[in-house]
Simulated scan of single mutants.
Amino acid sequence: MNSQQEYIQRSIHLKKDLLILVIKILVFIPITYTLIEYESYYNDKRVLQRLVYALNVFLSSNIIISTVRIILLSWYKRRSLYFHTSSRGSFVLGINRIASVLNAVVIIFSLMLAFGINPRDFLTSITIVAAAIALIFKDYITNMISGLIIMFSDQLTLGDYVKIGEYQGQIIDITLVNIVINNDDDDIVMVPNNFVFTTNIVNQSFQNSRKVSVEFELAINHTMDREDLKKRLNDLLNKHSNEVLENSMKLKVLAVQKDVVKYKVQFTLTNLGKTQSQFIKNIVLNEVLKIGN
């Protein structure tokens, strides 16, 4: 089971979500009832009234958000089953991110009510400040919007092996700010969401591709005939037929410069896997070092 499948399985637990929703409703109903029936009692206890009213607002808003979330996830699950399409975690991730943001806003508003602050008056008083904040954090805001577009576009999702500009690796998370990539060196790289829309992207997982590319350079005085180099590397890869499809190797000359010749060797793995890919890359690069020496 890959990363996106694990995420979907964790996220779409409709029975569990429905149970939690029912519990919220069962708590919400008596609180609402007491606010209506015992209004005079709460009028004498203003602090308690604010706290209970704030809790009531939080629960009512949270119930609406949870209900919409469950409906959308249920629709997406049924749609995937009906059209026999694979469920990609980005849509589920997007719904969960939006639900989290809305719940955070509801919590802030509820806390304002609990402390006796009128949210409407508060928002009116900070209109100019909010405009200044929006201007200062415009990159962050556009990053959030870009993140939502990425999530709902369904083009990138958890577990995809991608190349975004100079960064290459497996997507382990998509946040409202950046895409988190685990590269071939096991480094965690965070790529801003805006960057995705300004550079070329290669999604090998989307194409179910098992192709691996290795670029290297050879000094002019150590280079060899292209066909001889191709045969040497092809013979090397054929020794690892369990990992590499036989005779799937291609060798390209990328550039011939004053002191070096740049090459790219491409081959197809028998199975898509990060460990397997890195193992074969190391074998190729070790052979290149032998040629260079």
Rank of each mutant, 00 (worst) to 15 (best):
Q4N: 08
I283A: 02
D235N: 13
I280H: 01
V202S: 01
S100A: 14
L218H: 04
T67V: 08
E166Y: 10
S61Q: 07
G89L: 01
I283V: 14
T199G: 05
V92I: 04
S100G: 11
T175Q: 04
D121H: 15
I63G: 11
S110L: 04
V52R: 13
V212L: 05
R88T: 00
T199M: 09
T67R: 06
P30Y: 04
I179Q: 08
R10Q: 14
L19W: 07
S205V: 09
I128P: 03
I126C: 12
V162M: 05
D44Q: 12
N62V: 13
I128A: 08
R50V: 13
D228S: 15
E39N: 12
V22F: 14
R79Y: 12
V177Q: 09
A131L: 14
N182R: 12
V92L: 02
A134C: 12
F195D: 07
R46W: 10
E217A: 07
V101T: 06
L81N: 06
L113G: 07
Y82N: 01
G94D: 05
D225F: 04
S90I: 02
Y167M: 12
I23L: 13
N103A: 15
E246T: 11
L72E: 00
N286G: 11
A99M: 08
L272P: 10
D154K: 09
S100D: 06
V189D: 02
Q49G: 13
L18K: 02
D228G: 15
V212S: 00
Y161M: 11
N293K: 10
I117C: 03
K262E: 03
T270I: 11
D154A: 11
T67I: 10
L218D: 07
I174A: 02
E215K: 07
K250Q: 12
Y53M: 15
I280V: 15
V22D: 02
K24T: 00
I220M: 10
D186E: 14
L73A: 10
N178L: 10
T275A: 12
N178K: 08
I145D: 00
I31W: 06
E37M: 15
S60K: 14
L113P: 03
L72Y: 03
S241G: 05
S125K: 13
L51D: 03
L233Y: 05
A219H: 08
V261M: 06
K163T: 10
